[in-house]
């Protein structure tokens, strides 16, 4: 091999190295190990079919639903924690999220922090086990409608059915009875300008709405317990 050939080869090697640095430049960021527990945060408003103005913090359900499928499919993910601090939002988007969480085969635990109001209630109870921190509140109130109404009886019936769907979901996924939940929803005198009830941490557990009072520590213990019992069950089948 002549000298010029050698130097050409070296040059080629160097240029490929430069290419790699250019292409992968920032890829040397240390990657954290994969977590076996994923976190779904339901924050701010739950956005539905209509995009909300940007000053609202929103939970974008069109991105969350595929993420839930990905969690279900990924064998490395063994459990899901749902963190809630929401003021409610779109009924159908909220129910869609609730049904997705409830139908996951993997262990799920929810923690209500700050507030889990209105449509946040079905999302909180959708998990296998739900927790509420002592200072968190959940507002339970009837579904309302603002704006122009065409056909009052029909609209009323539609709203009534919508409300029934929420009540059905909550009562079938928690220990609260239908009568109790409805009485909380239509209670007078608790909210200044509205009917309904603002349920605080411990009361939510007493009513059977939420399973236990607790925060991150309790949620992690419960989730790990469920993951372990899931593993034992799988081992028995095999």
């Amino acid at each position: 091999m002549s000298k010029s050939d050698k130097s050409q080869e070296e040059e080629q090697k160097q240029s490929s190295l430069v290419d790699k640095i250019q292409q992968l430049g920032q890829s040397s960021i240390p990657t954290a190990p994969d977590s076996n527990i994923h976190v779904l945060s339901i924050i701010g408003q739950i956005e539905g079919h209509v995009q909300l103005p940007p000053q609202n913090k929103t939970t974008k359900y069109e991105h969350l639903l595929p993420q839930l499928i990905a969690i279900e499919q990924n064998p490395k993910i063994e459990g899901l924690i749902i963190l809630l601090n929401t003021v409610g939002g779109d009924v159908e988007a909220g129910l869609a999220l609730s049904e997705m969480i409830a139908s996951l085969s993997k262990p799920t635990v929810s923690v209500v922090l700050g507030g889990g109001h209105s449509i946040g209630v079905p999302i909180a109870v959708a998990a296998n086990h739900s927790f509420i921190v002592p200072s968190a509140t959940m507002t339970i109130h009837p579904i309302r409608l603002t704006g122009l109404v065409i056909g009052v009886p029909q609209t009323f019936e539609y709203l009534d059915k919508m409300q029934e769907r929420v009540i059905q979901f909550v009562t079938s996924h928690s220990n609260v009875s239908e009568e109790k939940f409805k009485s909380l929803m239509f209670e007078k005198g608790n909210l200044t300008r509205d009917i309904g009830t603002n349920v605080v941490g411990k009361d939510a557990v007493e009513f059977g709405l939420i399973d236990a009072v607790g925060g991150v520590k309790e949620a992690m213990i419960e989730l790990n317990k469920q993951i372990d019992s899931n593993k034992v069950n799988e081992g028995m089948i095999q």
């Binding site: 539905g48 079919h49 995009q51 940007p54 000053q55 409610g88 779109d90 109130h141 579904i143």
Partner: peptide, 21 residues
């Protein structure tokens, strides 16, 4: 679209359309 929230409609929809962009 039905919003189930204790917030007032005006609190949610306060900005003009160009804010979305």
């Amino acid at each position: 679209m039905i919003l189930y929230t204790p917030l007032d409609h005006n609190d949610i929809f306060t900005t003009t359309q160009d804010q979305y962009k």
